[in-house]
Design a binder for these strands. Structure first.
Length: 253
DNA sequence: GTTCTAGAAC
DNA sequence: GTTCTAGAAC
């Protein structure tokens, strides 16, 4: 039987270091970061709030419950998670450069309707290349433009809006979000429709490899410029900016 | 959240 | 015949 409350048991630990190193990535006084057990991308972590006053475990059950516990408290807790998640993001980016020579986007966000108990903020790399990504629900739940994946910055912006907009956004009605998971498969990057999951997965892998290739050639050019500026810039060596600079800025004057 | 598998889709 | 999806799991 699957354990849908495992995250809660982690978050309740008074000594997170007891957790196996295959589970725990790092912790602070206020949060735990764990490796997602079934990563849906090359890098995928979950940042969980630890259960500390004034919050009860029930209030930290999910986003909806947290919003109900009070606007200001919800705001500070999500800001805290965001701070810790951005640290994780930095580490992921460093690891990307170390392993692959360049970095790519990392998304921070919540699922509008989570499957597992206890609030968790996803830190996931934008490749979505992973063996554990197996079906439409998996993919659509991380599609960055579909609406099911709630970007951290969007959630934070709700706290800056008026009460009626805040009330509307924080309802997180299942009936509104769950149908999104059944939408047709579309590449999040180029918007092309995808026939099925295997096709999509092949496409995502190609897209990532393409991006890596581009980054690599950019890096190589940069390195070449540093070594031999004249040759790298071509025969003519302009002494200042290219003459078409104004057109590029979009300025009309 | 996953695994398993019947039957639809190709 | 094989691949793929989607719903049940006692």
């Amino acid at each position: 039987m699957p354990n849908l409350t495992i995250l809660r048991t982690y978050a309740l630990k008074s000594s997170p270091t007891e957790l196996p190193s295959s589970v725990l990535f790092q912790h602070t006084e206020r949060s735990l970061t764990i490796f997602d057990a079934y990563p849906k991308a090359m890098f995928h972590f979950l940042v969980l709030p630890r259960v500390t006053p004034p919050f009860t475990v029930a209030e930290l059950s999910n986003l909806k419950a947290l919003f109900k516990s009070g606007r200001e408290r919800a705001k500070s807790l999500i800001e805290m998670l965001g701070q810790d998640a951005r640290q994780i993001q930095k580490m992921v980016e460093e690891e990307m450069v170390k392993r692959y020579g360049s970095k790519w986007d990392v998304w921070l966000g919540f699922h509008a309707v989570p499957s597992m108990e206890h609030l968790h903020l996803h830190v996931i790399s934008s490749d979505l290349v992973s063996q554990a990504l197996k079906n439409k629900k998996h993919y659509n739940s991380f599609h960055p433009k579909l609406g099911f994946f709630l970007h951290l910055n969007d959630v934070l912006s709700w706290f800056e809006s008026d009460q009626s907009y805040y009330d509307m956004k924080t309802q997180l009605k299942k009936e509104e979000y769950e149908p999104l998971l059944k939408q047709d498969l579309v590449c999040w990057e180029c918007d092309r429709p995808m026939k099925n999951i295997p096709t999509l997965k092949g496409h995502l892998k190609e897209k990532w490899e393409e991006r890596m290739k581009k980054e690599k050639s950019r890096f190589d050019k940069k390195r070449k410029r540093a070594i031999d500026p004249e040759e790298a810039a071509g025969i003519e060596q302009p002494s200042s900016e290219p003459s078409n600079k104004r057109a590029d800025t979009g300025d009309t004057l």
